[in-house]
Design a protein around this nucleic acid. Structure first.
Length: 723
DNA sequence: AGCACGCCGACT
DNA sequence: GTCGGCGTGCTC
């Protein structure tokens, strides 16, 4: 929220008060805020003066402020929530206030306890509140607030001195400055790569904003183009932001940036401590780092003279923040940050999103293509296997291929996009299945824990051998998870190490790195995992990739389901045959005629996406329309339904351009004892090019409509799924 | 952080 | 029907 305060006494107006930190009185306490704008006309409100301005310069540059404002307006969220992304949290906290007696205080009538407290802080002060509490207990606190009310004691504030981070071995397995010698031998770009990087460098020379879509098949060497472009930006006195979907899954990419740029690379990731975050922020602000590599939050890195933003794997849905607000897409927003500071933006992917491909067709982005794999590697051969052996996890043809390749000293990767052992336990006698008491989902059985676990709220109970309803000893497993695939592979291939990578096995510190290092060092081995194994991994001796069940990827009730399935198949297939050996991909499915599988198997992105866009145009889905979703949630299902209907009425009456859909239940209606409904709003791109009508409708409806306090409302502009 | 407000359960 | 606890919203 934005509130208005007056300048502190004796403050001399300078040009750069906007973006500076200020300590202000707020509801009887001191709160740290950021100046968002200046005004001569505060309106009809009581304006208090700012208590203190701790710094000499802004912590948010005017460029960053503009960018944050854009995010807040576009994604309909308070500016403060967005500014939090741009600053390390220590800058928004203040140290605990110290209490001291007011000099020249009025001589009011006070009780005995108050007198004793006053004498205590006179002698030992200034003191923290908890010092008084430990000496006098709760009565001391009561007496203290009376003293404050009477103007006899006051609080003084100092800003928190941010801790300086100690250097430590980093999460990504590289210490500060450590580089990978093997990647340090200077690569040479092939013709396609050279053409692409020349175009990007050309734009850097122009010094104006431009966006490129770098469409390069898996293993085509996009990272080399990124590095060449980043080097050019740095040579021209600028800096670069390199965004990756998930830092722990791109150790190889990171190593290559470190090899090239050494100590000038700041690596940002979510497991950093607050002190490390501050350290990075400070060094970036001071221009001590010229390259920032990180996930979506890296988009808010306070770069000096930002010239280049790279978004690797731009199609990846983890660029979209789903909770909390702002529910922004870092990939789309990167283009806006680039536009606001005149930087070149490169969106790279083997499987660009429909939106980006459309923007390239419309010439909003310039398309650059890498059609060949680097150093003559060929794209893997994809074989679609119709499932015939219903009782088994793997078809015989899959198993014999694994066996052959392992014997030849190669590695195998197996994708099963569900964790746990079995997604459901069913009693074979009475049909009972265990459901989560707080969510409308069945519990997943985890063998390693012998627990039934809810993947939505974290509820768990002990696994049972007998049915709790009928008492029969006849429990059946339905739905295969990674643990079961792991067990099956251990049984079928004794003597070869089998590793499992999913959010359970990687939860421990450095979990990803440990598993990937072991798999990399192991010679012939098998890695089974959820979709996290499809991202970025680069092992030259993986010759087989197998998707256990492609049908689960195609069954989502969402307009992007085919796009997602295509991306997943191509990305995971891309892990095979990256070196000198030929890669093989096996896709197990019940429906081997499904067009998406065929097109992905043929590596024919253009054919798939051209058809997909025609379908989207016909059905009026993005990129031919804009979508926003308003989600209402409540523990009270009746009030929820009523509120959603009322809000629907306000939205439907308030407009002519947009299509407002009636409230529907989320696919999982109840999570954590909270029911969820959503209202989808759509406007066609030809009527609402920049989405302003859509956002205006929502903003107006939400300010007109006052919901019950039992209802939570959240807004998602450009939602990634409709489930 | 601390107070106002409204909803819901308990009790006369 | 009224009292009061508690959860939630609001504060410049």
């Amino acid at each position: 929220m934005e509130f208005t305060y007056s300048a502190p006494e004796g403050f001399e107006q300078t040009a750069d008060i906007t973006g500076r930190r200020v300590l202000v009185p707020f509801c009887g306490r001191a709160v740290m805020g950021i100046v968002t704008s200046e005004t001569d006309n505060p309106g009809d409100i009581k304006v208090l003066p700012i208590t203190m301005i701790p710094d000499d310069e802004p912590v948010v540059s005017s460029e960053m402020m503009k960018f944050c404002r854009w995010i807040s307006e576009y994604y309909i969220c308070p500016l403060g929530e967005t500014l939090k992304l741009a600053l390390p949290s220590v800058l928004l906290s203040r140290s605990e206030p110290l209490i001291r007696p007011v000099s020249g205080r009025p001589d009011s009538e006070i009780g005995e306890t108050e007198l004793r407290i006053l004498a205590f802080i006179e002698e030992f002060g200034p003191l923290k509140k908890k010092d008084i509490e430990s000496a006098f207990g709760a009565t001391g606190i009561k007496a203290l607030s009376l003293l404050k009310k009477k103007g006899m004691a006051e609080e003084i504030y100092k800003t928190k001195a941010p801790a300086i981070a100690r250097p430590r071995k980093s999460y990504t397995g590289l210490s500060e400055g450590e580089t990978d010698k093997a990647d340090n031998d200077q690569f040479e770009l092939n013709d396609e790569q050279k053409k692409a990087s020349d175009a990007i460098v050309g734009s850097l020379n122009e010094n104006t904003h431009k966006t490129f879509l770098l469409h390069g098949v898996t293993g085509s060497g996009k990272t080399m183009v990124y590095i060449t472009a980043a080097a050019a930006a740095v040579e021209r006195g600028g800096s670069a932001v390199v965004m990756v979907p998930e830092i722990s899954l791109t150790p190889q990419t990171l190593r290559r940036f470190r090899a090239k740029f050494g100590d000038s690379v700041a690596v940002l990731h979510s497991k950093m401590t607050e002190a490390e975050k501050y350290d990075n922020w400070k060094k970036l602000s001071d221009g001590k780092y010229t390259i920032a590599v990180g996930p979506r939050s890296a988009l808010f890195a306070p770069m000096k003279n930002l010239k280049l933003i790279i978004v690797d794997e731009e199609h990846d849905s983890s660029y979209k923040q789903t909770d909390p607000a702002p529910r922004y897409s870092a990939a789309n927003s990167a283009v806006m940050r680039g536009a606001l500071c005149g930087a070149t933006v490169v969106l790279g992917s083997a499987t660009p999103s429909a939106e980006s491909f459309y923007n390239a067709l419309c010439k909003k982005y310039e398309l650059l293509e890498l059609k060949k794999r680097f150093s003559d590697a060929v794209l893997p051969h994809v074989r679609v296997l119709k499932k015939e052996n219903f009782g088994a996890i793997f078809e015989n043809a899959s198993l014999s291929l694994f066996g052959r390749e392992l014997a030849a000293g190669r590695k195998v990767m197996v994708l099963q996009n569900r964790r746990g052992y079995s997604s459901m336990l069913i009693c074979g006698s009475c049909g009972y299945t265990a459901e989560c008491p707080s969510c409308s989902v069945s519990l997943t059985y985890h063998l390693s824990l012998n627990q039934l676990v809810c993947h939505h709220c974290g509820y768990y109970e002990k696994g049972r051998d007998v049915c709790p309803k009928c008492g029969e000893d006849n429990v059946k497993f339905k739905g295969i998870g990674t643990e079961q695939v792991e067990e099956e592979l251990r049984m079928k291939f004794p003597g070869y190490p089998v590793f499992r990578m999913d959010s359970d096995s990687t939860r421990a510190k450095d979990g990803h790195r440990k598993i990937l290092d072991k798999f990399g060092e192991s010679g012939p081995a098998i890695l089974v995992g959820t979709r996290m194994i499809s991202k970025g991994l680069d092992f030259s001796d993986v010759s087989v990739v197998c998707i256990v069940n492609m049908d689960t990827e195609l069954s989502y009730p969402d307009f992007r389901s085919d796009e997602r399935a295509f991306q997943l198949l191509v990305q995971v297939a891309g892990r095979a045959g990256r070196g000198s050996i030929k890669g093989n991909v096996i896709v197990q499915t019940f429906n081997d005629n499904y067009p998406v599988i065929k097109m992905a198997g043929a590596h024919d992105y253009n054919l798939f996406m051209t058809g997909e866009l025609q379908l989207r145009e016909l059905t009026g889905y993005p990129p031919y329309s804009r979508l926003a979703r308003i989600t209402l949630s409540s523990k009270d299902q009746q009030i929820l339904k009523r509120s959603a209907d009322e809000l629907y009425g306000v939205l439907a009456n308030g407009n002519k351009t947009c299509v407002v859909y009636k409230p529907v239940e989320k696919m999982i209606l109840k999570v954590n004892d909270t029911f969820r409904l959503y209202i989808l709003i759509k406007s066609l791109i030809i009527q609402d090019r920049n989405g302003k009508r859509l956002r205006d409708l929502i903003s107006k409806a939400l300010s007109d409509y006052k919901s019950s306090s039992k209802i939570k409302i959240s807004i998602d502009v450009d939602p990634v799924d409709l489930m």
